[in-house]
């Protein structure tokens, strides 16, 4: 029945108001990220099936993720079978750098996108021989905000923070550091030239995530790299 005049909206007569079409409420109660999370679950199952240890490297641009990978791959690929997925908005510069180490690499260009998602990773995995793979590195788009929200199916997020960025980054971008299991504090060879407070930085990271493991490294000089390699070997064995 029409609330305005009490008429039956199914009959026709001329009058000066419109009958609003009936509205139907539909309960949805669905997580906005449900599709990504379900694809991440599929990726995770694939990693499990092939016993692949998958890490999602996250950081701001210029923290040294690609250099970290180059060095890690050069030093460890004699004993471990690696592959790398590179994520950038544009160019395959990073993929070219990784390819020079001899490790299989696939570049994802996100265009305007600011993060990698589980769907993109699922397709990138088609480019690798998963049966002959031990460790997969996913180098996410350089961005301390958006990649934190998207599960790719990885075992751990590894946040790389360089000492040129400022010690309060874990407090400024808490979601990223809360969701990461490891923080690599990179470029420590530059500490003598900076006012960066290592103790404070670690305290901030622990405040956001008390369980986060922190390794101080310099990819350039090799300082601390053995602690990262040990963690990598241990965790890869335990999957």
């Amino acid at each position: 029945m029409c609330n305005t005049c009490g008429c039956n909206p199914n009959h026709s007569h001329a009058h000066a108001h419109d009958h609003p079409a009936p509205r139907k409420k539909i309960t949805i109660e669905q997580d906005i990220l449900s599709k990504n999370n379900s694809l991440a679950k599929t990726n995770r199952a694939l990693f499990k099936k092939h016993q692949i240890f998958a890490l999602n490297l996250v950081s701001s641009p210029g923290s040294g993720k690609t250099a970290l990978l180059e060095k890690t791959l050069r030093e460890l690929s004699a004993k471990t079978r690696f592959a790398v997925i590179e994520g950038d908005q544009q160019t395959d510069n990073d993929a070219q750098r990784i390819a020079k180490t001899g490790v299989p690499v696939h570049q994802i260009n996100t265009g305007a996108g600011c993060h990698l998602d589980a769907h993109g990773i699922a397709h990138a995995l088609d480019h690798f021989d998963l049966k002959n793979l031990d460790v997969l590195f996913i180098e996410n788009v350089g961005n301390l905000v958006c990649p934190a929200t998207f599960d790719l199916g990885e075992h751990h997020k590894v946040a790389v923070l360089s000492v040129t960025e400022g010690e309060d980054k874990p407090l400024k971008y808490p979601t990223m550091f809360e969701n990461s299991d490891v923080m690599l504090l990179n470029k420590i060879d530059l500490l003598p030239y900076l006012d960066f407070d290592v103790k404070k930085c670690k305290e901030f990271a622990k405040r956001v995530n008390p369980k986060i493991k922190i390794f101080e490294i310099s990819v350039k000089t090799g300082a601390g790299m053995s602690t990262w390699y040990e963690w990598l070997a241990q965790e890869a064995r335990e999957i």
């Binding site: 009936p22 139907k24 109660e29 669905q30 997580d31 906005i32 990220l33 808490p174 979601t175």
Partner: peptide, 30 residues
């Protein structure tokens, strides 16, 4: 997420709500 308890200054604290991102309901005109 890293805010301490305002009463005793402890952290970390256990988050009870505020992490969700959900579509709860729609209204449709058929």
């Amino acid at each position: 997420v890293f805010d301490p308890c305002p009463h005793c200054q402890t952290y970390p604290v256990e988050i009870l709500s505020g992490r969700q991102m959900r579509v709860s309901e729609i209204e449709v005109n058929d």
